[in-house]
Design a protein around this nucleic acid. Structure first.
Lengths: 287, 287
DNA sequence: TGCCTTCGTGCAAATTATTTTCTTTGATCG
DNA sequence: CGATCAAAGAAAATAATTTGCACGAAGGCA
């Protein structure tokens, strides 16, 4: 549990003075991590003991424990408050992208719906056939990644980014099968259509998408991904990285769930690769 | 600049006592961030002043500044020392994957070769035609991502994951064109063959791969990605996320480089999507 | 209305942590 | 074999943090 999450929860229950401290944390965070308790107290117009009590309230042992926690979290967690990269220099752009990506991961982690994930894993692990759908570049990558992951565990899976094919596949699917669809925006109307058809045919569906979106509404299970998008049109979507991490989580859990089968299949795949390539065993399962 | 990087540099120039302190940082990091100067000094069998001097040496103002810096960096930077997730519980697996991903990004950032990136960007921005190659699931994703990104900026690009096609395309390419190949392992022999052919034909090549690998050796420019791989076979590769971030960096820089052209093309693509879909302007460029 | 309790707060003292200064030790080099 | 210097500890000085206590305001209850 990180300190900003706790702060969020406690907020409202805080007193006036404590609120002033909280404001400084949120507004002048750099100052807060570097300041001593006296400086911080001074800036918030409270006495040092009040700061100590504030820290305790947030679940820290002491002021210095508090600062450490703060520094930990904030390295990642606060950066999304900073808008745009300093310059177009290579180094700055790189820094900005890395930070945003780490941040997307941080926010994803914070907002993960574990119950939904568990349900989804169960469905994936037990489906007789899996159809992974996604279009538009980003989501189509997610769909083919799903295929790329799941077939390694011995599951039957195919991916499609073609709307017509998706509809036809949905029509061909059976109630023991499973549709998984990804939509970053949640407003892919064709995916909604495929999901709706699946519902009529009693084929279960999993959506990886924004909650409260048309796609989410049309699915049996929604694994929500709710992230703020940056607004630089050149800088598409650290969201993609969050989705990929979510895929990692899902497929790792699926792997554990179907373990014996997965080990055998992986070994077979690896053997194929090694025999077929240059015999170096260190290589990855798929380059 | 983070503290572990500094530690790396200074190492060797440190005295005996200072080395003992450094060891504790590296081995029992959790202890180090939480300990007081006295506890830390005690554990390292040195006096408190020695610890203070050590902190100064590493570029910090004081011990507490040092702790803050440490906490900041280490939240991400040290986790790769921790081997495996605590359990197979959903929450732990999620935590583990997110951490590893953040970590891969951290390590990527630390090891980025900015000069190589700049050279690559220049080549990409000025190529008449770009061929993106990658195979085996992971790298093929990178190749198609490259296509997915670059075409948006008005560049001419195609991707292939098919070895035979890659060879034929390399044979068809001209010196004003560009081959970009990705290989996580660096030992994709077919990619080496395509690059070698390109070299004979004076077609420039960019490799996104491990340095000191056959693929790197065969390329005109190598943008190195050197990351330690986790060894859980079920958990393939937060490396993929690092590659994707690198792609983000490259393509953002390319976008800046070819700006006017990029804006026009993006607007056209967006217009197509909006007209074609449900008219909601908030959607992403490609779902 | 008036008393009592509770909570939030600051002050000052006590405690603890950190840094500075001074000194010793041990190694290196002419 | 000293002279010099870096390294490191001891003790003192300083600064930071916490604790104990008391006061005052707000709200509940007779």
């Amino acid at each position: 549990m990180d300190i900003f999450a706790t702060l969020q929860e406690e907020k409202g229950r805080l007193s006036q003075s404590e609120n002033r401290i909280a404001d400084i944390l949120l507004n002048d965070f750099e100052f807060a991590v570097n300041a001593s308790i006296i400086e911080l107290a001074g800036k918030a117009d409270v006495s040092p003991p009040t700061v100590t009590r504030f820290c305790r309230r947030l679940g820290c042992d002491s002021f210095s424990d508090f600062k450490v926690q703060l520094a930990r979290t904030a390295y990642i967690g606060m950066r999304y408050l900073k808008p745009e990269p300093k310059s177009r220099e290579t180094g700055d752009v790189a820094q900005d992208i890395i930070t945003k990506a780490q941040n997307a991961l941080f926010l994803l982690h914070r907002s993960l719906d574990l119950a939904a994930i568990e349900q989804a894993v169960e469905r994936i692990a037990t489906a007789e056939m899996i159809y992974a759908f996604g279009s538009g570049g980003n989501s189509s990558m997610i769909a083919s990644e799903l295929q790329n992951r799941l077939f390694r565990y011995g599951l039957r899976v195919t991916a499609s980014s073609d709307h017509s094919m998706q509809l036809m596949m949905a029509a061909a699917a059976r109630p023991t099968d499973l549709l998984i669809g990804s939509s970053f925006s949640g407003r892919n109307a064709e995916l909604v259509r495929a999901f709706t058809l699946a519902r009529e045919l009693k084929v279960p569906t999993i959506a990886l998408t924004q909650s409260n979106s048309p796609v989410a509404a049309a699915a049996t299970i929604t694994v929500p991904v709710d992230l703020p998008e940056g607004n630089n049109i050149y800088r598409p979507t650290s969201t993609r990285i969050a989705y990929l991490a979510l895929l990692d989580i899902l497929s790792s859990l699926v792997a554990y769930r179907v373990q014996p089968q997965a080990t055998v299949t992986l070994r077979r795949i690896k053997q194929q690769l090694v025999t077929h390539r240059d015999g170096d065993d260190r290589q990855l399962l798929g380059d």
